[in-house]
């Protein structure tokens, strides 16, 4: 189902975006750890930052990383990786007739491309969390247990995977990459909107995937993780369906 040659080509296309996103995320992590005054000026919440940065409020510091920094930046990374996945072959490289004239099925093309993007997301989420952990330890923070670290990162990864697969789905609908980007961003803004209201907050789809509850010891992570995997799977099947229908 995964084509080795095509996967290598995709990895080559993704690597620059991956490196840039990883470096930016690590940079934000460094600022939050070593230059908290910069972060507090930026966010306008100096009291919270100073509280998060003072031991033994380790949970708060990790909450900030996992629920805010990693969540937001992994969402942006997932968008960037996803919306050109299929439309990029038509509008970007314009090599779709080359690719589809080869003995490879369209499902194989989507699967290979999606798996390459997801692999980069895995490296991005765990890699950046690992680097941030090392930096936090260097800054005098107490590290959480490995299982907690792994599970919370995995839930964030599942959310990023949903966003990535939705962007892949939109890229199967449009010939132009910017249209795929526009529609995926509009969709996710609509999905995130309830999160900003006091009344609608409890109904926001991804509020429960921010791991806040997990860090505070009140919720399990398995439900949002499972939901994320199922939704990502649905977007994958939709992407295959529409990509298969298109004629080039």
């Amino acid at each position: 189902m995964i084509h080795g040659g095509l996967w290598s080509k995709e990895a080559r296309e993704y690597r620059l975006v991956f490196i840039i996103c990883l470096l930016i995320t690590i940079l934000v992590g460094v600022i939050s750890l070593y230059f908290p005054h910069l972060a507090s000026e930026f966010t306008g919440n100096s009291a919270a930052w100073s509280r998060w940065m003072s031991s033994p409020f380790v949970d708060e510091a990790w909450l900030q990383w996992n629920s805010v920094i990693l969540l937001q930046l992994s969402a942006i990374t997932a968008f960037i990786l996803g919306f050109s996945t299929l439309s990029g072959e038509v509008g970007g490289n314009n090599a779709v007739s080359y690719l589809l004239s080869k003995p490879v099925s369209r499902r194989e093309v989507v699967t290979t491309k999606a798996s390459a993007g997801l692999t980069f997301l895995v490296f991005y989420v765990y890699g950046s969390s690992f680097v941030w952990s090392a930096l936090a330890w260097h800054a005098g923070q107490q590290l959480p247990e490995f299982s907690v670290f792994f599970l919370s990162s995995t839930v964030t990864l599942s959310m990023a995977a949903v966003i990535y697969m939705s962007a892949v789905f939109f890229s199967s609908l449009f010939f132009r990459t910017w249209l795929a980007a526009l529609f995926s961003i509009i969709t996710w803004l609509a999905v995130f909107t309830p999160q900003f209201g006091f009344v609608s907050r409890d109904y926001a789809v991804f509020l429960h995937m921010q791991e806040a509850g997990f860090w505070l010891g009140t919720e399990t992570s398995f439900i949002p993780l499972g939901v994320g995997i199922v939704i990502a799977g649905i977007f994958y099947e939709l992407a295959v369906f529409f990509w298969d229908k298109r004629e080039y």
Binding site: H3, L6, K9, A95, Y98, K102
Partner: peptide
């Protein structure tokens, strides 16, 4: 021909070779 412009000639040949039996 619409090929992958960012690849070299050798890379394009290597990529294409992997598609065929």
């Amino acid at each position: 021909p619409h090929l992958y412009e960012y690849l070299s000639v050798q890379e394009m040949i290597d990529l294409t070779r992997k598609f065929y039996s």
